[in-house]
Computed example of a mutant assay.
Amino acid sequence: MLDGQGRTIDYMRISITDRCNLRCRYCMPNGISWVPMEQILTYEEIKALAIEAAELGIRKIKVTGGEPLVRKGCPSLVGMLKSVPGVEQVTLTTNGVYLEEYVEELKDHGLDGVNVSLDTLNPRHFYDITGRDDLKKVLNGIEAALREQIPLKVNVVLQKGQNEDEWMNLASLAKERKLDVRFIEMMPIGYGRNYELIPNEEILRKLEVCYGPLKKDMQVHGNGPAVYYQVPGYEGSIGFISAMHGKFCQYCNRIRVTSTGEIKSCLCYEDRISVRDALRANDTEEVRRRLALAIQNKPAAHKFEIQELITEQKEMSSIGG
């Protein structure tokens, strides 16, 4: 389906929980008040939503959270979504702590790819950032996904005064592994407002100091806005998602659904349309109408660069960023 700006919207991110087993300081350092389970969409409701979304042209679905693997039965949901006519791809974003435990089950249910959030390879820094001592589990999860030959991306957020000097070590994960490392600029949402971001162009310049001018990798790596580069001698590629310094709104192809069934068409704004009641009333026509309305009214662009125009006040974990 085309939105009001003429963009094709074919990608939907679905948060299946607001809960998480980590306490990343730019996301939910002290935890939050969890949404009661009766307010969270059931897996059957999520599948029913996906059916209506596919009728409108959604072809790719990302399962997110919170941390999706803390919700029992997440791999089964992947299989349910894969069975929806019209859905061509189902992927998962995770912090990786439980990935090794569930990777075979995810593969059996048809998972097409996984993104692992990892901001450091230093155990002490990992604890400082996440509040947990689980770095080894995350690294084991990455290796397990590679063994299962599931396409893998590692998402990195650099933070001033914490892990900004680890850019080379993190990039080097792609040197001998067939995976992509993607540097994501900190977005001013929730606790992220309190951090000074590191522009991706700085990381690119540093890489080019080491390797010379880098060639853009024009292969299709996924559904998002990352710009990829080939690094000499690397098995994988290095990507940059530059929401602040490389605004890509004209190419945005997505909508988001929170764990409570609220459709968000842009992270910057608080606007949302709920489909939960319509799903629970089995009113498929109304579900589809509300999905179409959210797509049609998708804003032309975010305004992250103007603080007073950012109306979204909730934390990223609760809006399925």
Rank of each mutant, 00 (worst) to 15 (best):
G224N: 09
C210E: 15
L179E: 08
N122Y: 06
I241N: 02
E166V: 00
T260M: 09
S76A: 14
Y102S: 07
I241W: 00
I58N: 11
G192D: 10
Q162R: 06
M187A: 04
G86R: 04
L152A: 08
V287C: 07
R193M: 09
E164P: 08
V257Q: 05
S259E: 11
V257R: 05
I319Q: 05
E285S: 14
K314A: 09
I306D: 05
V78D: 07
T120Y: 03
E185F: 00
K82F: 04
D133F: 08
V97G: 03
Y234R: 04
K62M: 04
P36Q: 12
G246Y: 05
V90Q: 02
Q89C: 15
T260C: 09
M187R: 00
L152S: 02
R272N: 13
G65H: 05
C252L: 00
R25I: 12
V116I: 13
R23L: 14
E55P: 07
S33Q: 14
I306H: 04
H245M: 07
T284H: 12
H125A: 15
F183P: 01
R276T: 12
L69Q: 01
N223M: 14
A301H: 12
N163E: 08
G65R: 07
P85V: 07
L81S: 00
E45I: 07
E308I: 09
E101W: 08
I189A: 10
D108M: 07
G31T: 06
V90K: 10
Q250F: 02
E164C: 11
K107I: 01
L81H: 01
H109N: 13
V70I: 11
Y98G: 06
T258P: 05
R177M: 08
V116R: 09
V227P: 01
C27R: 11
G239M: 02
M168N: 09
M187C: 00
G113N: 06
D217A: 14
G113A: 11
D10G: 11
C268D: 09
S172Q: 11
V220M: 15
K82P: 00
G73H: 08
G321R: 11
E164A: 11
V114K: 04
A144D: 14
G65M: 02
Q250A: 13
I58Q: 13
I129R: 11
R205P: 01
S33N: 14
S242H: 03
V103R: 00
N163W: 09
L22H: 13
L41C: 13
V84M: 05
N194V: 05
T120D: 01
L152G: 00
V70D: 02
E312Q: 15
E262W: 02
M168Q: 12
C266S: 10
P213K: 14
I198P: 07
W34R: 09
G110Q: 05
E262C: 09
E100V: 09
K175R: 15
E185K: 01
E38L: 13
G261R: 01
L111A: 12
V78H: 03
I189R: 11
R276H: 15
E105Q: 14
E235F: 14
I51R: 07
S318F: 12
V156A: 00
I295A: 03
M168I: 12
D18V: 06
Y211S: 15
Y26C: 04
